[in-house]
Nucleic acid binder design. Structure first.
Lengths: 205, 205
DNA sequence: TGACAATGTTACCGATCGGTACGATACATG
DNA sequence: CATGTATCGTACCGATCGGTAACATTGTCA
């Protein structure tokens, strides 16, 4: 589900001129394959074959497979915050409703066969080395998520905003993982309700 | 941290007689390597080298790398429920305290550099294919965890036991994942407190 | 000592891994 | 039209992947 916007930002840092058309096709295919089947599970040969290009084309646009994986995650990051900001924009000034909307959406997404969870989370599991290009992007995304959740917990008047923000983060990560572990009917479908219960219990009385 | 007990149960289904000594060394090394660096990241050559054995020895005890990975997870499963049952045994008849003890332990374990989360969860992320031998073991472990948590939620008098049990599962999975994502000082350290808040809010008034 | 199971050794297999050298081809601009 | 530039495809690289064949060696126990 990569969008067409901002592709150039994820390729070669956007410093070069117009990005080659092949690069977009490669990134689109890599996005789909990396997300659905895992980064380590996909070889560059399969990517170029499915993209209808050749291997040298890939290495002209991306310095390595690891960097291609990082580009995939940068694209994922863009779309992630788009979804997040949609939920925020839907309920201006009401962080509790924003969280509820975001988690309801996550809960729905998990209830589909072959749901694969969060690409960021999965990449971090695949690459425990903190210096790996893909993991760097992943960790930055999660740090940002933590910041936002803690800020929203504070804005909704939590007794201990950091604890509530972290609790929401745990529920979200749990939903990503259990969504792909249990499939339909799994625990992830209750993430929004559990989050709301936790919020209710964490507000200043 | 593989223990010496019950090894034979995870090798060749335990139907044969005494397990070869080489098999234990192989499984121990594979356990450590698979857990710390990931299954896909480790080749059989590295396993046999670190175990001080040869490749044919590995394939005499394990039919394939995939089955070796499954054996690793069966061993992990044994030790997992040992830890779980310890927490249960520490507070007989008090499921809420049992949960609290288990989650406190998880929270502590996550607060160490290079924490790698749950081997079961990680394996499921590495192998999205539901028919993979390693994933079969992983999914069975998670189903069992869900059963137990829902039963405990019912035993502690939750208004909606299935929702609370699933909520606890989400928090636990979130702790495993965020533990390896954030390292020291991450959200996982608050898993026990958040679980207790959620429990409090979920009990029949 | 004989017998057997377990392990070791060495060498090998085809497939795939990530990555590249190099010449051909399209294309825009003068 | 010519010329340079960028993208293309063919073919190839060494390394590693999971897995095996054939045979020598060890250790144990009767």
């Amino acid at each position: 589900m990569p969008s067409d916007k901002n592709i150039e930002l994820t390729i070669r840092d956007g410093h070069e001129s117009a990005p080659p058309k092949a690069a977009k096709k490669i990134l689109d295919v890599a996005y789909d394959l990396f997300y659905r089947r895992g980064i380590r599970a996909i070889g560059v040969d399969e990517i170029v074959k499915r993209a209808g290009v050749t291997k040298p084309s890939l290495y002209r646009s991306f310095p390595s497979k690891d960097e291609l994986a990082a580009s995939y995650l940068r694209q994922y990051d863009l779309e992630y915050w788009e979804r997040f900001d949609e939920a925020v924009a839907a309920y201006p000034g009401d962080p509790r409703a924003q969280i509820k909307a975001f988690l309801t959406r996550i809960g729905k997404r998990t209830q589909v066969a072959d749901y694969r969870g969060c690409g960021m989370t999965n990449a971090a599991v695949e690459y425990p080395d903190h210096s790996h290009p893909a993991r760097v992007v992943s960790e930055a995304n999660k740090q940002e998520l933590r910041h936002r959740l803690r800020a929203m917990a504070a804005a909704m008047g939590a007794q201990d905003p950091d604890t509530l923000g972290d609790g929401l983060l745990l529920l979200i990560e749990g939903a990503y993982i259990s969504g792909q572990l249990f499939g339909l009917g799994g625990p992830a479908q209750s993430v929004a309700r559990n989050a709301d219960l936790l919020i209710e219990a964490s507000l200043k009385k």
